[in-house]
């Protein structure tokens, strides 16, 4: 936990320093008052100072034995489910442009419920179709939401 917090604060410090550098590339002020770089510059500077302060206080904090038990990254039997969600979402986002919302979602729905432990194939099939073709129909026809059609079909 403490180590995790230290790493996260370190990442935020790096982020602030990067923003500081980027802000310096913009003009801080011009004749008409504060420029585009003004606000980001001060924010990044304050953020960097805060991050250093947080690093310092976290470092000084006594190690709480209960905290050491807390695992930051997904672990145990749940890690597979966690990974399934992330990987399938990413794959769906990537596939949607090519095959379109309906087909990408059909596969996503079926794959995710199976990965999360569902085994009744008929329920999976009904859910996957309703959750892709059904949802697509409702959103595009009734609610005027545009969804990707997929370019391989055109």
């Amino acid at each position: 936990m403490r180590q995790g917090r230290l790493i996260a604060t370190g990442v935020m410090l790096a982020f602030c320093l990067f923003a500081l550098w980027q802000a310096l590339l913009l003009s801080l002020t011009d004749r008409l008052g504060p420029g585009p770089g003004f606000f980001p510059f001060w924010l990044a500077l304050i953020g960097a100072v805060l991050a250093v302060a947080l690093l310092f206080t976290t470092f000084r904090e006594p190690v709480d034995p209960a905290d050491a038990e807390v695992r930051i990254l997904p672990h145990g039997p749940g890690a597979k489910r966690w990974l399934a969600i992330v990987v399938l979402l990413a794959a769906t986002a990537a596939a949607m442009e090519i095959v379109g919302f309906r087909l990408a979602m059909l596969v996503f729905n079926a794959a995710l419920v199976i990965a999360l432990g569902e085994r009744r194939w008929w329920l999976i099939a009904v859910f996957a179709v309703l959750g892709s073709f059904g949802v697509h129909y409702i959103f595009t026809t009734w609610l005027d939401v545009l969804l990707p059609a997929g370019w391989i079909w055109s």
């Binding site: 379109g100 309906r102 087909l103 545009l146 059609a149 997929g150 370019w151 079909w153 055109s154």
Partner: peptide, 14 residues
């Protein structure tokens, strides 16, 4: 299903 998809995809192209 394919023709359905293709038809709707075609109308969405620019």
């Amino acid at each position: 299903r394919r023709t359905l998809l293709a038809a709707s995809a075609a109308t969405a192209t620019t």
